[in-house]
């Protein structure tokens, strides 16, 4: 199940036909919670603006509309609903990668530093979903991935993989162009590679953007990264 960059279901190498909006929400909610949930909790969370009876009816309807191959992904009991064992969710992998990158001294896996990790951390969770439960999850993920992308850029630079480090830092900048720490990371990566002109260019672009957007100058801390480079 893909939740990053949009909802998507696949089986093996092939994409599955889209399921109804209500079924998508049910599947995504179960995937994000990662454990079986009571029917009442699921119904009241996914259909908060209706009566309990209607919410339960909507849940039954969403379950009934899940098409055959996808139905096996959901385990239902009298009181609970959850995802079946073996259902892989891209967000779970990305979140675990982000936590490892941010944990001091954590043992990183090779996949944590590959381009797929940069791509996963660059993707929004369920973009354009505005349900209450989804908005909170998407904002939490956004914060986590911003920090993780900066950490990933540092890990890659330390490993001497400067091209990928720049890609990770640029992804952090794109995700939040006003966040100074992302620009600082990009400048540091350029400096670590010995690319002073690129560092100055990155600084100049941020300075110009900050000035046009908010009428502000970068902090003295950011100036400090490039001060020596600008002296004749």
């Amino acid at each position: 199940m893909g939740l990053l960059g949009g909802f998507q279901l696949s089986l093996g190498q092939g994409l599955l036909a889209p399921v109804s909006g209500a079924s998508q929400r049910l599947l995504a909610f179960l995937a994000l919670r990662q454990r079986p949930l009571s029917r009442t909790l699921v119904a009241e969370t996914l259909w908060p603006d209706t009566s309990d009876a209607r919410a339960h009816a909507s849940l039954r309807s969403a379950l009934a509309r899940v098409p055959e191959p996808v139905r096996h992904a959901i385990v239902t009991t009298f009181s609970g609903i959850g995802l079946a064992d073996g259902v892989e969710v891209d967000f779970e992998h990305a979140r675990a990668t982000a936590h490892r990158l941010l944990l001091q001294g954590a043992q990183l896996e090779p996949a944590d530093l590959d381009q797929a990790a940069i791509a996963s951390l660059s993707a929004d969770l369920l973009p354009d979903w505005y349900d209450d439960w989804a908005v909170i999850e998407t904002e939490e993920w956004r914060q986590l991935r911003l920090h993780a992308l900066e950490a990933l850029a540092v890990h890659l630079a330390v490993a001497g993989r400067f091209g990928d480090a720049v890609a990770a830092a640029v992804a952090a900048v794109r995700a939040e162009p006003l966040r100074e720490s992302a620009h600082a990371t990009l400048i540091r990566v350029h400096l670590a590679e010995g690319n002073q002109s690129e560092a100055l260019r990155a600084f100049a672009l941020y300075r110009e953007f900050l000035s046009s957007e908010l009428g502000l100058e970068p902090t003295p801390r950011l100036y400090g990264l490039v001060d020596d480079l600008q002296r004749p």
Binding site: E139, L178, E180, L214, P218, T219, P220, R221
Partner: peptide
């Protein structure tokens, strides 16, 4: 209609105007 307003706010330490609200 249902309206939605998301405010992301953080502090940029040492900036002349530290608050960033998006």
């Amino acid at each position: 209609h249902t309206g939605l307003l998301i405010i992301r706010a953080w502090i940029e330490q040492d900036s002349a105007e530290p608050l960033r609200a998006q």
